[in-house]
């Protein structure tokens, strides 16, 4: 039976839409990577690999572990809806948001210590505040996006064959994690 023009168009769009969405998102990640790269290179250009002895290493390691843990819960949220488990989607998105908030609390402590030991008036301090602030803002927007996906998921949106809203948000969250994987050694370890 011949398809109507509208049905044929919908079928064609269903074929290319996921790929176009992913490509668009990855192009966005590429542009974001340039932004982070500029801040990271500024840290090395202005202060080399010097870092203050007063950095709180246990706190940084702790929030790194929290962010990595949030990445696995985000992964499990996406995997859950991809396999038809809505309860899992809601559970793991909630855990991811909670861990993101814990990370942000850790960032607040980092900022407080930075103001005391290496304020923005110092070279390292300005790099520290700029990088942590830039990344922290991405974490904040990620939490907002995850909360929107959670709300939609609770209302019955998303199906195993249609969950781009979750996939896109979760990929963004992983990108935020990926950025931290580079920022953490840049500020604390080198």
């Amino acid at each position: 039976m011949a398809l109507s023009a509208g049905a044929a168009h919908e079928r064609a769009e269903a074929m290319w839409r996921p790929r176009a969405n992913r490509l668009g998102l990855w192009l966005f990640f590429a542009s974001e990577a340039f932004l982070f790269a500029a801040f990271i290179s500024a840290r090395f250009v202005t202060s080399g690999t010097d870092k203050p002895d007063t950095l709180n290493q246990p706190l940084a390691l702790g929030i790194t572990v929290v962010l990595l843990a949030s990445s696995i819960s985000a992964y499990l949220a996406e995997t859950s809806i991809a396999h038809g488990d809505r309860k899992g989607l809601i559970r793991y998105l909630s855990i991811t948001i909670l861990l993101g908030l814990v990370f942000l609390v850790g960032v607040v402590f980092e900022f407080r210590e930075a103001m005391e030991y290496f304020p923005p008036g110092t070279i390292y301090g300005s790099n520290f505040v700029a990088l942590i602030g830039l990344h922290g803002f991405h974490v904040f927007t990620g939490i907002v996006a995850l909360a929107v996906a959670l709300g939609l998921g609770k209302k019955g949106h998303f199906e195993p064959d249609d969950y781009w809203g979750v996939e896109g948000v979760v990929k963004y969250w992983h990108f935020v994690d990926l950025a931290w994987v580079i920022i953490y050694p840049t500020l604390y370890l080198f």
Binding site: R22, S71, A74, Y75, K171, H174, D177, V181
Partner: peptide, 11 residues
């Protein structure tokens, strides 16, 4: 992270 969590190959 890129390979297993972000599924970069799917692009």
């Amino acid at each position: 992270i890129m390979r297993y969590f972000m599924h970069v190959n799917e692009v």
